[in-house]
C-alpha cells in the first residue's frame, strides 16, 4: 500500500517528537492509541522498543474517596524527588449517555503547567476496542516518553478497569471511613487485590476503626494481592497532604520488592501480552461483526430455525473468515 508510507512517516515523526519532549505530539499520539487500528499497531511497534522502564501505579477507589486529590499530592511528592509523572485518569461515565463529562482533572490542574507532568483523561466508555486496550496502549506511550511514574486512576469497577489494574506494577486501593466501611466493600472487584491500602480522610473519627478492619482482613487473607508481599496500610489526609510522603515511600518499597523478585519485568511482559491479546480480540471482533452484518437475515433466523445454532454459527464465521 503506497498511501500508507506517508502516514507511517507522520506517525514516526509524532513518536519521535513525543519521545523528544514535544507535549502536543504526545497528546496527539495518545489520541491515535485511543482506538485499535493499523496506525496504533505501527505506533505500538515502535513504542515498546522504548518503553518498559516506567513504574506503573494503579490507584483505585470508589468515587468520593479522594483519589484525585491524593494523586495530586502524590505528584507533588514525586516532583520533589525529581521524578517525571504521567497520569491516566479514567473518569467514570454513564454508559447510557452519548458523550462523556470528565472532571477528575480538576483536582490535578495545578500540575498542568509543570513540563514534567502529563495528565490525560479517559472516558470509561466510548472506545471502540474497549477502555482497557486504550489505557494499556497509552501506558506504553507515556512510558516511552520518559515518565518515571505512571499513575492510572480508576474506580475499579467492571472488567476493563480490573484489567487495567492488573497491568499496573503496584495497586493502591484508596478507602475512606464511613463509606460502607465493612469488608464487603473491600471485597468488591479490585478492592481486594491491593498491594497497598490507603485510609484516606484519616482525620475522621472512624478512621482507626477502618484501619483495624483492613489489617484484620489482611491477616485472615480475605484481601491482598496474593503475592509474596504483605500489603501495607497507610493513613492519609489528602486535603491536608498528611501521610502522602509516607505513601510514596511505601510505594517505593513495593517497587523495590518487585525489582528484587524479578516481578517488575514479568509485569511489563504480562501487560504487553494483555495488550496484544486485547488487540487480537478486537481484530476478531471487528471481523465477526462484518460477517454478521453481511449475513444479517440469515443470522437473525438461526436461533429459531436451526437445530444446532452453535455449530451453524461457528461454520458461518469460519467460512466468512476464509472469504474476508
Amino acid at each position: 500500500m503506497q498511501s500508507s508510507k506517508p502516514r507511517e512517516a507522520y506517525l514516526n515523526s509524532l513518536i519521535e517528537r513525543a519521545v523528544g519532549g514535544d507535549r502536543a505530539a504526545l497528546g496527539k499520539l495518545l489520541t491515535v492509541l485511543e482506538r485499535p487500528s493499523r496506525d496504533s499497531g505501527i505506533v505500538l511497534r515502535t513504542l515498546v522498543k522504548k518503553s518498559g522502564r516506567a513504574h506503573v501505579v494503579g490507584v483505585t477507589g470508589i468515587p468520593g474517596s479522594g483519589k484525585s486529590t491524593l494523586i495530586s499530592k502524590l505528584i507533588s511528592v514525586y516532583r520533589s524527588w525529581g521524578l517525571r509523572v504521567g497520569v491516566l485518569a479514567v473518569d467514570p461515565t454513564s454508559p447510557l449517555s452519548r458523550g462523556a463529562l470528565m472532571a477528575d482533572r480538576l483536582r490535578m490542574q495545578r500540575h498542568a503547567t509543570d513540563p514534567n507532568v502529563f495528565i490525560r483523561s479517559i472516558a470509561s466508555k466510548g472506545f471502540r476496542g474497549g477502555l482497557s486496550l486504550a489505557a494499556l496502549a497509552m501506558i506504553e506511550a507515556l512510558d516511552a516518553a520518559g515518565y518515571d511514574k505512571i499513575i492510572v486512576e480508576t474506580v475499579g469497577v467492571g472488567q476493563a478497569e480490573v484489567d487495567i489494574m492488573h497491568a499496573a506494577h503496584t495497586i493502591v486501593v484508596v478507602t475512606m471511613p464511613g463509606a460502607g466501611d465493612d469488608i464487603q466493600a473491600l471485597k468488591a472487584g479490585v478492592m481486594e487485590i491491593g498491594d497497598i491500602y490507603v485510609v484516606n480522610k484519616s482525620d475522621k473519627p472512624e478512621a482507626d476503626q477502618l484501619l483495624e478492619f483492613i489489617n484484620f482482613a489482611l491477616e485472615t487473607g480475605e484481601i491482598g494481592s496474593g503475592e509474596k508481599w504483605r500489603p501495607l496500610v497507610v493513613k492519609t489526609s489528602a486535603i491536608m497532604g498528611t501521610g502522602v510522603e509516607e505513601l510514596a515511600k511505601v510505594i517505593e518499597k513495593h517497587l523495590e520488592h518487585l525489582v528484587r523478585t524479578g516481578r517488575f519485568e514479568e509485569k511489563v511482559e504480562s501487560r504487553r501480552l494483555m495488550l496484544a491479546r486485547l488487540f487480537a480480540l478486537r481484530i476478531v471482533e471487528e471481523k465477526v461483526e462484518k460477517i454478521i452484518e453481511a449475513h444479517k437475515r440469515e443470522v437473525s433466523r438461526i436461533l429459531g430455525e436451526s437445530d444446532d445454532p452453535y455449530t451453524v454459527l461457528e461454520a458461518l464465521i469460519e467460512k466468512g473468515l476464509r472469504e474476508l
Binding site: 468520593g64 484525585s68 495530586s72 463529562l101 472532571a103 477528575d104 482533572r105 480538576l106 483536582r107 486535603i239
Partner: peptide
C-alpha cells in the same frame, strides 16, 4: 488549615 479544591461535580 489547607486549601480547598472543589469536588469534581457537574
Amino acid at each position: 488549615y489547607g486549601e480547598w479544591v472543589e469536588p469534581p461535580l457537574i
